[in-house]
């Protein structure tokens, strides 16, 4: 009796929490299919009722703004930045496990300290720096974070994963004449696939969603990425909600699908 009551309590709570957190995404999808000309809804049910599905909203946003070209640009950027992030973050994470304890402790402390520097504090100076290097209006400033593993947190995720690898494996491979890069590619990385996938998902969200980079650095429309396109659509008509929600859905779908596909590994990596 008591157990069944508790089970219902758990189910109700779980459903409520899931609904609250999924509501922005589900609402975005539902509203994106509302015909664009309809008057604004006056009740919640009216707003979310889907009598006619206006799939052509998704076509119209690509005609109003060159979202197709922008999407390709965003994909291209992510296709360069995500693998590069995995390389640099996993190198640093692996190197941390090889260092002698005092240096390792110092570098771990440094990595955590770096997590505490707000990116917003250095945007302006980075802009001045990249301008003086003549790199404005190129993808270099947008890709640059991948050089340092994008976020010290990703380095730490790799470090925690590689720490599980027995040191003897590396010793044995090294006795056979393997170099640092061999050890990384042949021994460490295959054993840390879940960590690599988790970081890939996080890095994809990071680079795909970046709206500050394009805002600061890109001047030519040919280079614009998806976040710029969605802001253009917002500037065209701030009240055409079905179209804006369709654009938001197009932008959200790739990282969401990536997360859902990788989530099994994602949780395992963090909470093993």
């Amino acid at each position: 009796m008591v157990t069944s009551w508790r089970r219902w309590w758990w189910r109700a709570g779980a459903l409520a929490v899931a609904a609250v957190f999924l509501w922005p995404v589900l609402g975005m999808l539902a509203f994106s299919l509302r015909p664009a000309g309809l008057p604004p809804p006056r009740t919640l049910l009216e707003g979310l009722s889907l009598q006619t599905l206006a799939w052509d909203n998704y076509q119209r946003i690509f005609e109003l703004v060159p979202l197709g070209a922008y999407t390709l640009n965003s994909l291209w950027l992510a296709a360069l930045a995500v693998p590069l992030t995995i390389v640099t973050a996993s190198w640093a994470g692996l190197a941390l496990t090889w260092l002698a304890p005092p240096e390792r402790r110092d570098l771990l402390a440094l990595s955590v300290a770096l997590l505490l520097i707000p990116g917003a504090a250095v945007w302006l100076a980075r802009l001045v720096l990249f301008n003086s290097l003549g790199l404005r209006d190129t993808y270099w400033p947008l890709l640059a974070p991948a050089l340092m593993g994008a976020d010290p947190l990703y380095v730490l995720v790799f470090y925690w994963a590689f720490r599980q690898v027995p040191r003897e494996l590396f010793e044995a491979a090294r006795a056979d004449g393997a170099h640092a890069l061999d050890l990384w590619w042949r021994v460490a990385l295959p054993l840390a696939r879940p960590a690599a996938l988790a970081v890939a998902a996080l890095a994809f969200v990071f680079f795909w969603g970046d709206f500050v980079g394009p805002l600061l650095y890109l001047k030519s429309p040919a280079l614009y990425t998806l976040p710029v396109g969605v802001q253009q659509l917002l500037a065209l008509d701030r009240t055409n909600w079905p179209l804006l929600m369709a654009a938001a859905a197009v932008m959200t779908a790739p990282p969401l699908l990536f997360f859902l596909a990788a989530q099994h590994f994602f949780w395992r990596e963090y909470t093993a």
Partner: peptide
Amino acid sequence: AVYVPSVVPPVA
């Protein structure tokens, strides 16, 4: 579900 809003890009 709790993680989902965190993968939504800032503009969206």
